[in-house]
Write a protein that binds this DNA or RNA. Structure first.
Lengths: 113, 113
DNA sequence: CACGCGCATAGACGGCTGTCGAAATTGCAG
DNA sequence: CTGCAATTTCGACAGCCGTCTATGCGCGTG
């Protein structure tokens, strides 16, 4: 499943209606962020020292099982919000700033009058 | 179901991990935006002349049934993305810029090194 | 007042999703 | 090579979600 390029130039939502294809692509990312656990995962990774966190760091912060965390990480990775890198026995996750920036720009309402 | 105030000061995701409560609140909004039809609805309303659109305007843009559109509008209204106002026989919907602005600020990654 | 139109609600149904425990995979150490 | 530790994958299951049809409600018009 490719990370899917979002929008070439990220026009604000209010500029003109999104096409069905654009909406489908962007909705995938919002959907991934639409889970409390995943949202916290992103914030944990983003705010972690060095901008990265291993799975064990993340798992410790939740009461859900470790496979469940792994599942959420896969979802976030599939939509291009996170990337992963294996070093020794641990897998480290990082956020992809470009993806979040795209969404941020999209939601940046230009004084909708 | 109250529109739920998001975050008092909208700290970026990377500042510090969200609490479970914060994440739950924000995730509700992202979840609402995580559907292609709803995302297009928001963009249609936001880009419509006068910043508002009646249900008939929106329904015409989709192939789904009118009750389905009405359901999506309710979801977006419940999380504080849209507001509605009845004038005569028609109901007009508007975006709530503050809500989208909150999310935009949250995703605005501050150069995550 | 009664009808028609615009929109919302109710109920039903198939498919997706979050969760789990168990098993497989990968890499390191001995 | 063998065993261990960290992580992913698998299979299953309950609950949620998007969609539909049918129905109800509000409002303007004749």
């Amino acid at each position: 499943m490719e990370p899917l390029e979002l929008l070439e130039c990220s026009p604000p939502l209010a500029r003109e209606p999104l096409t069905a294809e654009q909406a489908a692509g962007v909705a995938r990312v919002f959907k991934a962020l639409g889970d409390p656990v995943r949202l916290r995962i992103v914030s944990i990774v983003a705010s972690h020292a060095g901008g990265e966190a291993c799975v064990c760091d993340i798992t410790d912060a939740f009461d859900v099982s470790q496979p469940t965390i792994s599942h959420h990480l896969k979802v976030l990775k599939d939509v291009g919000v996170l990337t992963s890198e294996r070093r020794a026995s641990w897998v480290y996750y990082r956020v992809v700033p470009e993806t979040l920036q795209e969404l941020s720009a999209l939601l940046n309402t230009p004084a909708t009058v």
